[in-house]
Design a protein around this nucleic acid. Structure first.
Length: 899
DNA sequence: AGCTCGACGTA
DNA sequence: CGTACGTCGAGCTG
């Protein structure tokens, strides 16, 4: 134990000291917040950390403490357990999910520069009692935050206890008056009362038949426990007898519940004065915990520039080129320029109003694009379009679109910090420049207001927003080196340069092009689906004799399980499922007409919704411009949003009608679709090197028929359609980590049969089994999986001791190389198609990508050549040990062109 | 207004 | 108790 330093703090009447019992508050937070709602994406539970931090921030906000300290229980053992082995003996073991969060709370406290301590042999409350006493003696106002009522004995004019009534957000302030009011005794006498009444949570039994009222009465009569003990013979009645029988326990209770006020705490009052927080550490810790909201709350609490001195190190020089001098100024900037475009872009249209440019020396400017001198405008256009001058951008796809809205063409993008960050951390959902700056530059983007402008010695009259654009341009430029190093260290340098960056150019062109929509056709089927919705709803209402909201699972559950008393379905978090599968089952069991109408309603409303969404997103040019997101899917796939054109219905006839609304645009000959057949199984064959599976693809026989003939030991011609269906489900399931249970459920067969099927499969295709187990083993060892192009997915959860999370990670490990390699191949194909179309100066163009399918718009007379290009580029996108089979279709609509 | 949840479309 | 996405309405929270 450390020796107590002399307390040199002079009495300070304006000091406000906040003392927190860490364990007690964290434990309350743990139970107040559902653990399933608070976890990082990697599965680390954070409910206790969150609740604790949130409470801490509230306290700091509400009480503005000048001094702050947290005390921890080191172990259950203390002088109290030595004296009384049963002390707190009824407490069950702390859940492991809670224990793991304590070090995380330590990290939070560290980042916030809050002193915290645990002292062997005493409890946290003894530490708090000691500090409270010292602080009060020094003249400070003290707040003690603890869930242990024993702390009430500390209450005085100077000391208030904050006691959680419920959870961690509802704290009640206990001053002398409140203690007196609630217990009928003064704070000093509270432990006497507790000794008599007992404390269940500490496993201290009280006197049977004596509650707080009796105890308070005796304390009043005899002046306290000492007086009661001295006069124990005088107390009459049953309670008196009971007291005499249990007197030893009461005396023991009193010895145990008295808090120590002279523990050798290694902090003086001065030591726990609130210091400046470590901003970088806060970012690091809150990043890791994924506490974005709390981080914002924290920074709002702080003086604007606290801990921000490092901002000054951001070299940034703002210049204002004279009118007509922009061309010369830009020419002097050299290479590796950071760019930031300010504007808005969505659905194929938008506007850009400012452009920030920063060079390698941190010299930069912010241009108002709405008010450029015509000469400067031309100079800027030439400079932006110059492919020789290299630029670095964060999200170059959006920047390019934005600049295009003002007629500028952006070329020479050699690095995109967004794409780089995605390759390094594919599981993150967002890659904000601010976060990257903190992570890679250990620096914050300056919050640019007038004060910051002064600090940066910026000569500015413009908008604050423009200034932050300049800071972002500088940050982007500076980020290039660190991110490039990280990308290379992760073996993704080739992917960035040869795949993601060139692909970005293709995506820009695709988004610009959009796909033509047949407006009148879509409106017609919208009306049709609408009346189908009405019909189904009317039928459903009639069947149950009332109107309900058919779109509300909650109301549906009332109808199905309460009103109609149907058998309960599978449980969900909030009740019983009403999904289509369960409804179909219920229909088979009950034949109730409501279910038929409900299912019809679901389908119709869904179709109507899809069409409505599409109609809403048709741009003035009559086309739908989706956004392909290149940095969202952890496996490397693209995703499509606003609207999502990768989930347009195809399986049902009704759904397929929607595809008729996507048509060839004016001036073009037809749509062409090209898709890979069974690309994932082919990748499986390639990666596993399973001779049987490779042979299956080389034989030219139908894959599932071939595999089925091997598994069931019959001639391919004798594989029944039922056998084929089982094999197909099985083959695809393997790539997702399907279990025998899952397979049995999907096929509606016994688990044993499913297991037998899997065994037979692996018997014949042992290479597949070896590959699948090997992939997980390797990933466990390396911490990541890899695709054929070296795209990684990091899976730390493979080592989790939580079974559910571990098994989830194992399935991800099985799937990521397969889905991700397919994504790699399609991306390479897209780049090849785009390149060939450009080199041959064809008018045809890529429009969409749907994971294993490309949709192109063919210019008149180019059909044959385009088909040849697409086939060649797609089939040749990777050299696998099995051929890559491509099928092509053409037509005036997406449906016709499909197969 | 902003969030989560259930449901469901695609590969 | 099969992966990867995006979108919608309902219903809750602030």
């Amino acid at each position: 134990m450390t020796v107590t330093p002399p307390d040199t703090t002079p009495p300070t009447t304006d000091a406000r000291v906040l003392l927190i019992d860490g364990h007690s508050m964290a434990f309350r937070a743990f139970f107040a917040l559902p653990v399933e709602n608070f976890a990082t994406t990697s599965g680390q539970p954070t409910n206790a950390v969150y609740g604790f931090t949130s409470m801490l921030l509230n306290l700091i906000r509400d009480f503005a403490p000048t001094h702050l300290m947290v005390a921890w229980d080191v172990s259950r053992a203390s002088f109290r357990t030595t004296e009384y082995a049963e002390y707190k003996g009824t407490r069950s073991a702390t859940p492991s999910e809670f224990k793991g969060q304590i070090p995380l709370i330590h990290d939070v406290l560290g980042a916030l520069s809050i002193q915290h301590v645990g002292i062997d042999g005493v409890e946290a409350d003894d530490v708090l009692a000691t500090m409270a006493t010292r602080s009060a003696e020094a003249g400070a106002q003290v707040l003690v935050c603890s869930g242990d009522r024993d702390t009430f004995q500390l209450v005085s004019d100077r000391v208030t206890v904050l006691y959680p009534r419920k959870g961690v957000s509802d704290l009640v302030q206990m001053g002398p008056a409140e203690v007196q009011e609630k217990y009928g005794v003064t704070p000093e006498r509270y432990p006497d009362l507790a000794a008599l009444v007992g404390e269940t949570s500490d496993n201290l039994p009280g006197v049977p038949g004596v509650g707080p009222k009796t105890a308070a009465k005796w304390i009043a009569a005899y002046g306290g426990l000492e007086g009661i003990v001295a006069h124990v013979g005088m107390i009459t009645g049953k309670a008196g007898d009971s007291l005499r029988e249990n007197l030893a326990q009461v005396v023991l209770n009193r010895r145990l519940n008295g808090l120590l006020r002279d523990v050798e705490v290694p902090f003086s009052l001065e030591d726990i004065a609130r210091g400046p927080i470590d901003r970088a550490a806060v970012h690091e810790v809150f990043d890791a915990l994924q506490f974005t909201v709390l981080r914002d709350r924290l920074f709002q609490l702080l003086p604007q520039d606290e801990g921000k001195e490092e901002v000054a190190s951001l070299t940034l020089q703002h210049e204002r080129p004279e009118p007509k001098a922009l061309g010369a100024w830009l020419a002097a900037r050299g290479d590796s320029i950071g760019l930031e475009v300010v504007g808005r872009f969505a659905g194929g249209a938008g506007d850009a109003w400012a452009l920030a440019v920063a060079d390698a020396d941190g010299v930069g400017t912010v241009l108002d694009l709405t008010a450029l001198d015509p000469d400067d405008d031309r100079a800027l256009a030439d400079w932006l379009a110059d492919p020789e001058r290299t630029v670095v951008v964060h999200d170059a796809k959006t920047a390019t679109h934005l600049l295009a809205t003002r007629g500028y063409r952006l070329r020479g993008v050699v690095f995109d910090t967004l794409l780089a960050a995605y390759l390094c951390h594919p599981d993150q959902r967002t890659y904000d420049l601010d976060d990257l700056a903190v992570r890679y530059l250990q620096r914050e983007l300056p919050r640019v207001d007038e004060a910051a402008a002064d600090q940066l010695a910026l000569d500015l009259t413009g908008e604050g927003e423009d200034l932050s654009a300049l800071a972002r341009a500088v940050a982007v430029r500076e980020l290039r080196a660190s991110l490039a190093a990280d990308v290379d260290a992760r073996g993704a340098g080739g992917l960035l340069e040869s795949v993601e960056l060139p692909l970005q150019a293709a995506l820009i062109a695709m988004e610009d092009a959009g796909i033509a929509a047949d407006l009148s056709y879509l409106r017609a089927i919208e009306a049709e689906f609408d009346s189908a919705v009405e019909r189904a709803a009317a039928g459903a209402y009639e069947a149950i004799g009332r109107q309900v909201n058919l779109g509300s699972p909650k109301q549906l559950q009332e109808v199905l399980f309460d009103q109609l008393d149907m058998p309960r379905t599978r449980r969900t978090k909030t009740g019983y499922t009403t999904d289509a599968e369960a409804l179909a089952e219920l229909y088979a069991k009950t034949g109730h007409p409501f279910l038929e109408y409900l299912l019809a309603h679901r389908e119709a409303i869904r179709l109507r919704q899809t069409v409505e969404g599409l109609l809403r997103s048709v741009a003035p040019d009559g086309r739908i411009h989706t956004t392909f997101q290149q940095t969202v899917a952890a496996t490397g796939r693209l995703s499509s949003a606003d609207p999502n054109l990768q989930n347009i219905p195809i399986r049902t006839e009704e759904g397929n009608r929607i595809r008729e609304g996507f048509v060839v645009g004016e001036g073009y000959e037809c749509l062409l679709t090209a898709d890979y057949s069974q690309i994932e199984m082919r990748i499986m064959a390639h990666l596993s090197e399973d001779a049987g599976l490779i042979e299956a693809f080389r034989s030219g026989e139908d894959l599932h028929r071939y595999v089925g003939s091997r598994v069931f030991g019959v001639a391919p011609a004798d594989v029944t359609s039922a056998m084929r269906a089982k094999i197909k489900a099985m083959s695809y399931g393997l790539a997702y980590g399907l279990s025998a249970f899952g397979l049995s459920r999907q096929l509606g067969i016994e688990v044993s049969e499913a297991r037998g099927l899997m065994d037979d499969y692996f018997e014949r295709f042992g290479g597949v089994r070896d590959y699948l187990t090997g992939v997980v083993d390797d990933a466990r060892r390396d911490g990541f999986t890899e695709t054929i192009l070296g795209r990684r997915r990091y899976l730390p959860d493979l080592l989790s001791d939580n079974r559910q999370r571990r098994e989830m990670a194992e399935r991800m490990a099985l799937n990521a190389p397969i889905q991700g390699s397919a994504a790699d191949i399609v991306k390479v194909a897209m780049i090849g198609v785009q390149r060939e179309l450009a080199e041959r100066e064809l008018g045809s163009r890529l429009l969409l990508q749907v994971h294993d399918e490309l949709v192109l718009e063919v210019a008149p007379g180019e059909r044959t050549e385009v088909e040849a290009i697409v086939r060649e580029q797609m089939a040749g996108a990777a050299e696998l040990s099995v051929p890559l089979d491509v099928s092509v279709g053409v037509g005036r609509s997406w449906r016709e062109a499909g197969h």
